Amino acid sequence: MKTLLMSSLLSLALPAMAAGLEVRAPWAKATLPGQPVSGAYLELRADSAARLVKVDSPLAETVEIHEMKMDGGMMKMRALPALELPAGQTVTLKPGGLHIMLMQLKGPLKAGSKLPLTLHVEQDGKTRSVAVEADIRAMAAH
């Protein structure tokens, strides 16, 4: 029983791993009732060149990979068709930069609960799905 408990606790502390892809520190912003959008953030590291081509969540009608950047003195946001994941480099999705945009939410995202995400990654000639659970944090927490 002790061994099972310790291995369960240890698995919670480790980053999510899929063959050739590491997902670290996934989290999303909590929302207010009626708020239709939120963002999700994480770190991705692929051991060979890969591309994040799509993200799904059962809690949102539409999920897109987005980029925010300054353009002519104005902050602009746009959807990306895919996100390149260079081999051996960590790609960080964070507020004010690359992120996952959750639109047409099916209900509020409550702090302390989990947001299920499915990442669709092209790597080594194959597309596979990676299930991730992001912690939902209060809006002021980053």
Results as ranks from 00 to 15, higher is better:
H66N: 05
G96I: 14
K29R: 15
V121Q: 00
A131T: 10
K110F: 11
A82C: 09
D47H: 13
E84S: 08
K54Q: 09
E61L: 00
I65M: 04
S8P: 00
D56L: 12
Q89H: 10
S57I: 02
D71N: 15
P95N: 14
T62L: 05
G88E: 08
R51F: 07
K76H: 11
K126L: 07
V37L: 11
A111C: 08
R51Q: 06
Q35M: 11
M103N: 13
V53G: 03
A46P: 00
L85Q: 00
L32K: 09
G97E: 13
L42E: 05
P108I: 06
M77G: 14
L102W: 08
T92N: 12
R51C: 03
T90G: 06
P108W: 09
V55T: 04
D47I: 08
M17L: 15
A50E: 04
L117A: 10
G97C: 10
S11G: 06
L12I: 11
M139G: 06
A141T: 13
S8E: 11
Y41V: 07
Y41I: 06
K54I: 00
A46R: 04
A13N: 08
W27N: 09
L105D: 05
A40T: 07
D71S: 15
T127D: 04
A30W: 08
M77E: 15
